[in-house]
Amino acid sequence: MKRFNHFDAASVEEAVSLLNESTGPSYVIAGGSDLMGCLKDNLWMEAPERIVNLKTIPGLNEIRVENDGLHIGALVTLTDLSESDAIKEQWPGLAEAARRTASPLLRNMGTVAGNICQENRCWYYRYPDKIGGRIDCVRKGGKRCLAVPGDHRFHSIFGAVKKCIAVNPSDTAPAFIALNATVKTTKRDIAIDEFFSAEKGAQSTILDRDEIVTEIIVPKPEAGPTSAFRKIAYRKSIDFALVNCAASVAVKDGKIESARICLNGVHNNPRRCETSEELLIGKELTEELAREAGELAVAEAKPLLQNGFKVQMAKTIVADTLMDCTK
């Protein structure tokens, strides 16, 4: 790990000021479960000049239910998110997504903002340079994605973004998308559908380098809605998802009034299943309809030689998650 300067911020304003004062790259840290790995492996082309600690800022670790919905502070841990009675009762898909993230130890450390802001995962991109030297894939300034001709078992089944087929690894991201959340930062309010952007290169979000997530707001459920989350991984206790899915469905008089479905682990960005959502509107949610929605969700899939199995997984998990919304 290369040397850097470490600062404890006393307020959000001070944290932003510290980032702006830096003459080189700088990052914020809270739980550090993703950032520390990136630092140890010298992941980035430019080593950070300074790291700004956000855990010294009071008030960013609160969960509040207000008139407009659920307010989740950026420093709320995944454990707190998964164990909140209010969230389990009104937003069960989100509580389950947090519960299925990583291991208990990592959930105790990891924050909700960190989980949605973590970088995309690919073993070529994240290969430690201390083991055999640096691998310059396209995300590190190379000319091509090395996973395409190499080992791409866990990579995108919906094509590349800027030649890269690394996938977004977050478990809570699809849950927030299914619940139509808003991300509040030091600069603006961002609709969750617009928050993720692998198009910016090595980043996975649209955040500016001096922009900090302060809160995530989830609107109150409509009358009769429910949400659900499912995840397929090699080891349930810790692994990143091969495929995960979140869904939120509102039903009135036995018919679906609104629906939001999101897959992750299948593309550079969390993938909203809008054609599947449109199929559901005005209909009764049955197993047959859920299967049709699953088929539509993967209609545009472009799997490679080694990851075609994820297409069937995605198709099935959409149908199963939707049926969980009826329970």
Rank of each mutant, 00 (worst) to 15 (best):
M1A: 12
H6T: 13
F7Q: 00
A10C: 11
S11F: 09
S11D: 09
V12E: 15
A15V: 13
N20S: 15
E21I: 07
S22I: 07
T23M: 11
G24I: 07
P25I: 05
S26I: 09
S26L: 08
S26M: 05
A30T: 05
D34H: 12
L39Y: 05
K40P: 00
K40C: 04
N42G: 15
L43P: 01
W44M: 14
P48M: 12
E49H: 14
L54V: 08
V65N: 00
L70M: 12
G73V: 04
S84G: 14
A86Q: 13
E89Q: 14
E89G: 04
Q90I: 10
Q90C: 10
P92M: 15
A95Y: 03
R99E: 10
P104V: 13
R107M: 02
R107G: 06
M109N: 07
V112H: 03
A113N: 06
Q118E: 07
R121H: 11
C122T: 04
C122Y: 02
C122H: 02
C122R: 01
Y124H: 07
Y124V: 02
Y125R: 05
G132C: 08
I135V: 15
D136G: 04
C137W: 00
V138Q: 03
K140T: 13
K140L: 13
G141E: 15
A147H: 00
P149I: 12
P149L: 09
D151Y: 11
D151W: 13
S170A: 07
F176K: 00
A178R: 04
A181L: 07
K187S: 09
D189A: 13
D189Y: 06
I190T: 06
E194I: 04
A198F: 06
A202P: 12
Q203P: 04
T205L: 05
I206F: 08
D208Y: 04
R209T: 15
E211C: 09
E211G: 03
I212H: 01
V213L: 06
V213Y: 01
I216W: 01
I216K: 01
P225S: 15
R230C: 03
I232Q: 03
Y234I: 14
S237P: 03
I238L: 09
F240C: 01
A241R: 01
L242T: 07
C245R: 00
A246H: 00
A246W: 03
V249N: 03
K252L: 11
K255A: 14
E257V: 11
E257N: 15
A259S: 14
G265Q: 03
G265A: 06
V266E: 02
R271P: 02
C273Q: 10
E277W: 02
L280P: 04
I281D: 09
K283Y: 12
K283L: 12
E284V: 15
L285F: 14
T286I: 06
L289F: 10
L289S: 05
L289C: 11
A290D: 03
A290T: 04
R291N: 08
A293L: 08
V298S: 04
K310I: 02
V311N: 01
K315P: 02
T316S: 10
D324Y: 01
